[in-house]
Design a protein around this nucleic acid. Sequence first.
DNA 1: GATTGCTTGTTGACATGTCACCAAGCTAGC
DNA 2: GCTAGCTTGGTGACATGTCAACAAGCAATC
Lengths: 162, 162
Amino acid sequence: MSTRGYGGPVTEPRWLDEKQARAWRGYRRMRALLDLQITRDLAADSGLSDADYDVLSNLSEASPHRLRLTELATTMLWSKSRLSHHLTRMQQRGLVDREECAGDARGSIIVLTGAGLRAIEEAAPHHVASVRRHMIDLLTDEEIAALAALSHRVVAHLTAAP
Amino acid sequence: MSTRGYGGPVTEPRWLDEKQARAWRGYRRMRALLDLQITRDLAADSGLSDADYDVLSNLSEASPHRLRLTELATTMLWSKSRLSHHLTRMQQRGLVDREECAGDARGSIIVLTGAGLRAIEEAAPHHVASVRRHMIDLLTDEEIAALAALSHRVVAHLTAAP
DNA sequence: GATTGCTTGTTGACATGTCACCAAGCTAGC
DNA sequence: GCTAGCTTGGTGACATGTCAACAAGCAATC
């Protein structure tokens, strides 16, 4: 029976059991190591950062290779401020460009440049190979299905209105 | 049949199929959203950042609440530089302290202070609740087992000597 | 058609992370 | 013991991310 002085819950917290703790710690460690490795591969193969790749990838999937800044920020789960800063740097490297938005004078349209398109097209095969090598090809079909199912459930939960 | 000008693989890259892509995109999105939410919860409940929590957690699990800087950095997968910078900031807030290392005059021993111990003890129950709410309690037992198994396999792969 | 309030994108100050380098100390081979 | 090379932890310069504030434009209501 525990009593606590700081006004928190009076009941004993539900700690994680052994299996849950293994899953959580494993997830965290995989997340950290996978991030490091994929960032390294991407930089070595293409000279791009994770952030660069995500921006270019999203732009290249848009129909005319251009998106409103806010839309891009929402898709990427980035703040507008962070995206604006990052785009300024990518613009200086010639990977993207800004255009005025017809119909909304406040707006900024982000455009994939030719160099940007070339960069993502050259980077993509290496990146996919890296993702396969360090993760996807290590999993069974059942694990891939389980990962897809559980991650989509967690995403749905976190996306639901608070 | 594709030909390429930049000396890369001549074969068509093995893109991800639909199921693999769903798993990968889901994982990436879960990762991003979960990170944001858990960081927010941690800050709101305890005033700690993810990084603070990790440092305090690792120190509190060490036997006499102290660790060599290099050892801590290795465990956390951080660079020594990053850890040193972060510890300087945590030290200014009174959460940790530095001690000289008997037997190795270069060494720095990182010590959990009383305030640091109190901080992690108050933060932990809220943090576990947050982890459960946004992830663990949303998964079936099978999914927990699958996540533990696959993440440990990926970690083992990434930890093996290159 | 003016007032009021929201949205958009940018900026500057600051927090944090990365990178290359350094001084001091250890260590192994001679 | 001495020396050559490695390890340790720290530092400064710089890259990146966060946060609050802002100007400009839009929209809705009267």
